[in-house]
Write a protein that binds this DNA or RNA. Structure first.
Lengths: 227, 227, 227, 227
DNA sequence: AATGAATGAGACTTCATTCAT
DNA sequence: TATGAATGAAGTCTCATTCAT
């Protein structure tokens, strides 16, 4: 019921330094540092394969400390996601709010913004993570769907509707067209984090150019046809 | 991590006995039954979350038996994936060999065949599995890249080149355009196996229609422009 | 993912003996041995303070083995209780079934049987256990109440009713009188397992004599009064 | 296990300051508030299941503060129990000092007083606590036996002897008869604090009536018999 | 004197793997 | 060849206790 390490510890000589280092209090910095470390590890190894202790070590604390800030491993990931996507989504929503211009431009900007704020950053690892683990963590999946996917798709959806309303894009079931736009971008993020799958050398920026161009013309009304 | 020979041909040696008693066949069928069960479970739950004992139960054997045929859980996954791809690719290659017609038709057929033989079957679970686990199994990833992805992309690439050569598709860096075609189909497979990601109700067939239409027009030469 | 102890193990010399000892299979004996060990430890230290590993060691297995037989620690205790009380209750119920004689004799016999089969054995530790822990393990408490207490009280209750019906015992609210009978016996069991509470030297058998005598006369009709 | 002085008199040194500022009083009250909170929690959940931090929160302080007053969790329990008993015993002893009347009346009054001062209050939780934990705290058990049980039983014992001397109660080994009186009352206290043990609806006051009546007649001399 | 962030020693539980039968 | 009981190494999470502030 009591743990007492004998004072005859061989490491005793360094005790002072150790103690100083061990008990630094970083109250408000901690959660951020933990999430930072967690994002890296989750993205690199996946959720299940990342041990809480690894996160702790990477954040410079012990596992116990993690649990002062997060109820469990799942909550860590949820926090990571929450913190991570908010900015990008807000940006995207702001962009749409008072856009005036061609739908082609709008779609281009939405996709590029998405890519710059997410795809080009560490966050691009999250979609892969969710794909891999969501079936085993339903609550996580629900959270991700509601907080991230739903908002993201709503955004793309509005851009498409904008184009349809303006007569730039063919009338289409928007909820499906959204997926068509979404898929190639998400796949790009997946590829970025899949070292060894035949995409080592893909130039994702050029890939994205082609995606955008293809989408815009592929979704656009076709002169001469009336479908 | 522990070198092991895959259960390459345990059946070969027993060929004679087979002819003697037909019901002995079960024994030779074992590895196949195990892989069959394993595919289902890996696809449904992922690698880490699938217990060897579950695979055993699903295959109608006990855990110990699995280890007669596979050195460890990793080897089961490798075998599962290796076994799963061959058929679909052969079919696709045959299709292309002597096609004559519009590139639009060709691309449509290639994609539809791919979907019918893979997307619509259990095999559609494999891409997700690879996405999730390839980083943890480099050797497997290499195999997958060389044996499956490379062949598959070559196929799509030839279809695109066919279209460019005929003047139907805009000239493009084919290796990137291939990805543009590939991404939405692969994502569709992923969605099929991701219960809870906001795609519960997607009608994948209609999605695919839109994908194909968008791709064909998106990749096509645009009347009035000369790019 | 793989644990391989180097063959240069200093203990290697004893490997054979070790192995022989380590892998003895005792399928059907196991559950009983585990419950046996568990009862001792639970009674001696309480539920929360007993570690699964202690039980395992006492039963000559490792902790992992326990979980092949019991889903969790709580189930171990439930099994202990289930196994333990069945016989005594059956005995008691049989006794009552076709008793003919004075209620005083019946009550005496019921209490003495109870004591002989439970109080005088290791099982006498269970009531104390339940008292101490039941608030923290509601499911356990419910189980105990329904499977043991309810049946036991029903038994005593019938004996009392028998006496009331025969005019030997005063008419009383039976469900309360049952508690009056029960309390001193349960307390005796508690004392037996409370080393240091002032009952070190109590002669529980003589205590029980007095309890019985007091109860019989205390519950009996009083000559000269008609209450 | 680690020797510690109980927070015997931390207030003494601050007496001067106290006179200066009345609101400093809170500081002296701390240990009491902690014990107060601890009693509630220990009684409700048991020792092991009560977290130091819970006690702290309930006392309006933080965990660290607890350790200014108590060396460890064990010492809290010891202090709780030590503090809790004194008052009730004194009352009981006063009652007996100059009683004149029937032994039946005396016994009735002693039991009812005991119940009113202990059974009906929070203190009724202590016996259960002692039952559950005394084996783990031998020193505490010794204290409890000597300071509480011994005095309490002496009290009951004198009441019984009084009855025997007056010819109201049968001659009996008093130290055992004491237990017979004690047991049903202690059990009542235990039941009060055991939510789920089949005593949810017991009317403890009526139970006590029956106990008293049964005891008085059960212990009494039986007209017509000369045992 | 008080805080409360941090520690670290376990506890329970899971599961890939082994091996006597 | 097949079984399945048993192992043992993790992994997640808890919590009494410490100590810089």
């Amino acid at each position: 019921m009591k743990s007492t390490k004998p004072p005859s510890d061989p490491a005793a000589c360094c005790a002072v330094l150790d103690t100083v280092a061990r008990w630094t209090r970083r109250k408000d910095a901690r959660p951020g540092e933990i999430l930072d470390a967690a994002l890296d590890l989750f993205v690199a190894r996946g959720f299940a394969a990342t041990k809480v202790e690894d996160i702790a070590r990477a954040a410079g604390v012990t596992a116990g400390t993690i649990y002062r800030y997060f109820a469990n491993k799942e909550e860590i990931l949820k926090a990571v996601i929450r913190e991570s996507f908010a900015p990008a989504l807000l940006e995207g929503e702001a962009l749409l709010a008072n856009f005036e211009g061609s739908a082609a431009e709008l779609l281009t900007q939405v996709i590029r913004t998405w890519w710059q704020l997410n795809g080009a950053t560490r966050l691009s690892g999250i979609p892969k993570l969710m794909i891999a683990e969501s079936n085993n963590f339903p609550e996580l999946a629900r959270f991700h769907r509601e907080e991230v996917i739903a908002r993201g798709e709503a955004l793309i959806g509005r851009a498409l509707q904008y184009g349809i309303d303006r007569g730039e894009f063919r009338p289409q079931p928007v909820e499906l067209a959204v997926k068509v736009v979404t898929a190639p971008v998400v796949m790009a993020m997946v590829w970025k984090h899949t070292d060894v799958c035949g995409n080592d050398g893909i130039d994702l920026d050029r890939y994205l150019d082609i995606v955008i161009e293809t989408l815009i013309h592929g979704l656009g009304v076709r002169p001469g046809t009336n479908s």
